[in-house]
Simulated scan of single mutants.
Amino acid sequence: MLEGDSVVAKRSVVLVCFEGVQGLDLVGPWEVFVEAGADQYALRVATVGGGPFLSSSGLRLSADDLSRVREPIDTLLVAGGQGIDTAVANPAFVGPIKRLAATARRVGSICTGAFALAAAGLLNGRRATTHWGWCERLAREYPLVAVDPDPIFVKDGNVYTSAGVTAGMDLALALVEEDLGRKAAMWAARRLVLFVRRPGGQAQFSAALELQAADREPLRDLQAWIVANPAADLSVDNLAARVHMSPRNFARAFARQVGTTPARYVERVRVEAARRRLEESPDTLELVAAQCGFGSGNSMRRSFLRIVKVPPADYRARFRSAGS
């Protein structure tokens, strides 16, 4: 706790885990709460049957018996990991989560822990997220959940869900800020050498990273140069000249190795750059468009509609709302 801050009653935080949990899903949020103030939070880990259990990487952990955790608790968080399917199939795992969630002030999940909340019916009719690689499955298996694959965490009422692994630390920082204020969250982030709270609406997965890297140089180096210089002249003729190829041969080689045309790749890189600026800066849409290589705000808008499915203004508004 920061010097001069008032002392408050400890908030009970229970982190629910299982055999095969992703270790960072548990340890990451735990460390955030500890750094925010050991005198502010009473932390405990719980699993079915209690006792020692292993994370997916072989880390040996210890926990209380989940069935013996009793109300009242302030915050219930369910971690994720490779063992989530086995855990969710066990009524002794899902039942206590549902029971504890009924009286907890707030409930949340990290990564695939969202499947546990969904199995307990806690996400029905709510917007939620999980690790980008599991979003499609979550939506398919739980059609009553409005799955949003984009943000690093989502708040819907008193239910919070986060994306994969390190996003759990972002969620924990947001919870600390709610409880103790921005000053305490920034203190914890600095102590842990973290980015000072990424807002929840920030994209969890870079669109540019979805595209495969070229098999060999010089196209692989050219891809990196494009990402670093979205406002440059990225026409096929200019890109071909940079790698000493004819425009025709360059376009064919690029499409073969990267899996898309140079124009489509450039468009996605520019949209990604614009998304970051819309998330992080107050610049006007026209200025963002110019900074990211779009010929005009209208050009950026068309690309956003094609790739992000919403116009830039709506994206910025949604981002700020999700991160508030």
Rank of each mutant, 00 (worst) to 15 (best):
L239R: 04
L171S: 01
R190N: 15
V243H: 04
A241Q: 13
L192A: 08
R190C: 15
D233P: 07
M169I: 15
L192I: 10
K183L: 14
D170Q: 13
L175F: 08
L173G: 09
A213M: 05
S235M: 11
A231M: 07
L194S: 12
M169D: 08
V176S: 13
R198Q: 14
L180D: 15
V196R: 11
A213Q: 10
Y160T: 13
A240N: 06
R182Q: 09
A214W: 01
A184R: 15
I226S: 06
H244W: 09
R242V: 03
L239G: 07
F195C: 14
A213V: 12
L209Y: 01
A232D: 04
R198Y: 01
V243E: 06
R190V: 15
A208K: 02
E178N: 10
S162C: 02
V236I: 09
N229D: 13
A184W: 13
V176I: 12
L175N: 07
L222E: 03
D170K: 09
D221P: 09
T161K: 08
F205M: 01
T161A: 02
A208I: 09
V243L: 04
S162N: 06
A228F: 14
Q202R: 14
A203L: 06
V227M: 05
S246A: 12
L209A: 13
P230C: 03
D233E: 08
A172C: 09
G201R: 03
W225C: 03
Q202S: 11
Q204C: 13
V176Y: 04
E217H: 12
V165W: 00
F195N: 15
S162P: 09
S162A: 10
L209F: 04
A232F: 00
E178S: 11
R216Y: 05
Q223P: 08
G168D: 02
K183M: 14
L219T: 04
G181D: 08
L222H: 02
W225E: 04
D237R: 09
L180K: 11
M245D: 10
R242W: 09
L211D: 00
A184E: 15
L219C: 03
A203R: 12
D179W: 05
A207P: 09
Q223M: 02
R197N: 13
A189K: 10
A172D: 12
D237K: 10
R190K: 13
A207S: 01
S235E: 05
A172E: 03
A232I: 03
A214Q: 00
G164S: 06
V236H: 01
E177F: 14
L180P: 06
S235Q: 12
L211K: 04
P230R: 01
D179L: 06
A172M: 01
R216V: 10
V227Q: 07
A185D: 13
A232W: 07
L175V: 08
A224V: 09
P218N: 01
T166Q: 01
Q202W: 11
R198I: 03
Q212G: 11
E210P: 08
A172N: 11
D215E: 14
V176D: 08
A208W: 02
R191W: 00
R216A: 13
L209I: 13
P230L: 05
T161H: 05
A224C: 02
A213R: 10
R197I: 14
P218R: 09
N238I: 02
L239S: 05
S246E: 14
V196F: 14
